[in-house]
Design a protein around this nucleic acid. Structure first.
Lengths: 336, 336
DNA sequence: TTGAAAGCGCTAACAG
DNA sequence: CTGTTAGCGCTTTCAA
């Protein structure tokens, strides 16, 4: 258990002195710019060795202060409590590192104030790109970025002031609804409208999914019951209370459901379990999101997976080229 | 769509000129140190207003370079693909922000090389504390920290060179095993030894859990079958092949299982599904980890939850006080 | 009450 | 091939 107190850190000046050369030579060698400075291989080798021996670590603060580009890319994410955002973050980190960028990520708990505070903080750290994932107010973040000379991108939830890369929610929801309706027909023998649960009516994705949901019903000439569109928010508890209230008001609930995210699905499954409403005749569900345990353990649950890899490839192609597409990028989600 | 190119950033000198004062006054006011510098409320107000108007943003790199403390706390985490690490990261961020620290997190995919590279990068950014969560080689990271004058802490997986905060894996596994054995007896009417699946024999936690597993069997005077301890790694595919191989070698597998993490459980459930090995008589499982969908949808699956909140409270009490406990901190996991 | 000035550690001209 | 120098933007004495 060997925790020392701050030993004074080694700088390139210390190294220069030790080697008997100048700080600029050290800097050039350590940055790999020594071919263009035509430093002798011998000197370079010596510098590298001594740096190693001394456990030298670059002071990024100083380096960044002097440099023009920080290579820092920031990402804001609402939560880490589901596979979707988890894989976004993981993939983002991997892809950023692949191109020598330094990713910094922070979760903002769907709190608009925290979002802007986090954005400001990241900009203080000189991040060059800020990716807002599922942000409640992406345009506000873009505004902040613009005044700091940083570029911004919206992922998952679109904004109007920066390029947006999202899923094709309309087409995805339409297909998921179609499949779920078909599943209902197969299992129950009748073609009845579904219940829509979860998400915020005000957010773009939910609106689009509701639109796809309606379209799929219209495609089969089934009337949608307006009181059966429960855009009650994402949190599990919200879904629980919404279902509880609807059951109280209407009695028997539809056997078929469209659930908007695994977060909401958690609430739906919880309510199904505690309410015993469906005991003996389990509902048939389509979920706009994916989770391995639901796939493995769920009965009659169809899922769509958003194309995380594809979305991040779009993100990084914009970052790589600096050239943003003029239109919103919409990627088809994936059905197994 | 309004993405400007880098407008030159406003500095405190620009502000000073605009206000008609000095950079030091601006700095003091913007840092809230103006009472001790006895700057007039008027000047302070004017500076604040102009800064606002200009959309001034502190250059943290410059600030940090000059300052002695960075207030940056780093965390290394293996993956974001399960609820356990997700909640560790989320809680870490929240608690760090509560005390005015700046959290930076990175996932290292259980890759030892990436771990040390990530550690070095974080130290370059002058992070003062580095929390290694589930690191494959925590002592190596501590060594790196020591040479940079940073402090390190181990979370989840212990090391020998820095304070470690972990779950009481032995006691947790013993109790989980006891419960699972009891469940087996209740459901099947016989007291038979369990199969242990997942984790690495070389890692401390797995070793302790195996020890608890053995102890619980011993407590009930049941002999453990050595070929039934499959510490095959964490990845789902590893569990799949281990079960496949065992089934091929031995025929019928035990109905009762101890599964070491939800990651491995994913593989176990997958194999159960595709192999049809247990069709009609589902296994009785205890899982050292927690997931909401397993809790909701799983049949006969007992789970333990590690005390994430408690562990991070220990972490931050060390960071807050700077005073590390002499012994390893072990927190009891939580049974529902 | 306020300003001037030094310097954190590094990079990138510019001189040799 | 290599060293000297001038800052990057900020904080913090030290003087006034």
């Amino acid at each position: 258990m060997n925790q020392q107190r701050p030993t004074k850190k080694t700088t390139i000046y210390d190294l220069a002195e030790l080697v008997g050369t100048s700080a600029s030579a050290v800097s050039a060698v350590l940055n790999g710019n020594w071919k263009k400075r035509r430093i002798s291989a011998q000197l370079a080798e010596k510098i590298t060795r001594i740096a190693e021996e001394q456990g030298y670590a670059l002071n990024m603060q100083a380096s960044l202060l002097r440099r023009e580009k920080s290579k820092i890319v920031g990402m804001i994410v609402p939560k880490y409590d589901n596979r979707y955002f988890g894989s976004i973050v993981e993939t983002f980190e991997i892809m950023a590192r692949e191109r020598g960028l330094f990713p910094i990520i922070t979760c903002t708990l769907r709190d608009p104030e925290l979002e802007v505070e986090a954005a400001r903080t990241m900009l203080s750290y000189q991040c060059e790109w800020l990716i807002s994932t599922g942000a409640t107010d992406p345009d506000r973040i873009t505004d902040i970025c613009v005044t700091s000379g940083a570029r911004s991108l919206n992922l998952d939830l679109p904004g109007s002031k920066a390029p947006s890369i999202i899923s094709d929610n309309f087409a995805g929801a339409r297909e998921l609804t179609r499949r779920t309706l078909t599943n209902c027909q197969t299992r129950l023998g009748t073609l009845t409208p579904l219940l829509f649960v979860g998400g915020r009516a005000s957010d773009h994705n939910t609106a689009e999914r509701v639109r796809g949901f309606r379209q799929a019903h219209a495609d089969l000439q089934i009337a949608v019951d307006e009181s059966h569109i429960l855009t009650c928010g994402y949190a599990p508890e919200k879904a629980v209370s919404a279902l509880e209230a609807l059951a109280k008001a209407e009695g028997a609930l539809p056997r078929g459901m469209f659930v908007n995210s695994t977060i909401s699905l958690e609430g739906v499954m919880r309510w199904i379990k505690v309410s015993h409403h469906f005991d003996g005749n389990a509902p048939i569900i389509g979920c706009f999101d994916w989770d391995p345990f639901v796939a493995l353990l769920g009965q009659d649950i169809e899922m769509v997976r958003q194309d995380v890899k594809g979305m991040l490839q779009s993100v990084f192609s914009i970052i790589d080229t600096g050239h943003a597409p003029s239109a919103r990028v919409e990627l088809p989600p994936i059905f197994d």
